[in-house]
Amino acid sequence: MKQVIYTILENEPLTADVCRMVLAGDNSAITAPGQFVNLKLDGLFLRRPISVCDLEGDRLTLIYKVVGRGTAQMRDMTPGQTLDALTGLGNGYDLSLAGNRPLLLGGGVGAPPLYWLAKKLIARGAAVAVRLGFNAAGDVFYEDEFRALGAEVRVATADGSHGEKGFVTDILPDACTHYFACGPEPMLKAVYRAVPSDGQLSFEARMGCGFGACMGCTCETITGYKRICRDGPVLRKGEILWTD
């Protein structure tokens, strides 16, 4: 973990409520896709956790959905402004388990962390399949970006206005060596049930600190108590205990 003051390079909308922010700063503490940064915003006591979407040298890309005061403040920030971030938080995905045909499953703003992951897996020579789920055509982002990386991409929308009608679990490929999932909990649960192969799933929790000190985010797993912020956010399929 490292505290870094980033400078905003770009901050543009991708859809009506999802934006992409590109930052410049010291990325040295960020070691794996699936990790997150925790952002300090004016007038808000708790930091806001946002996943690493892409990383190149000192450039860091975040994609966020405006849902409340913190993310609304992010949307209103302009290039040149600075942002205080705790970086390199969380365990991230373990790429060594991917095999040669990994499947990446993203729902809504669960898609961003899969981007850097896809890039790394493709660089290692894997044939990457990406399945993205959104509510409607207007919510879809990064379909082309994933395709440009060389991934095989299919999209489902709940109302059928773009791609297939349905959920990511309705457009699964026949087989995969391992899967990586990120999205809302109902989607993760559906994926857990629908995909027979081993996988890694990324979870969200309300956080106090984001670095393992406050026990604000602990959940029970088959392998013991885990802090989502530090021992997660990525959990291995076999250790998940669903609460209901």
Binding site: A205, M207, G208, C214
Partner: peptide, 19 residues
């Protein structure tokens, strides 16, 4: 183990915890 999640909420100039 402590309480179920969520355990943390924001407050004006502070926070609530129910760890």
């Amino acid at each position: 183990l402590g309480n179920p999640l969520p355990r943390i909420a924001e407050a004006p100039a502070g926070m609530l915890n129910a760890v």
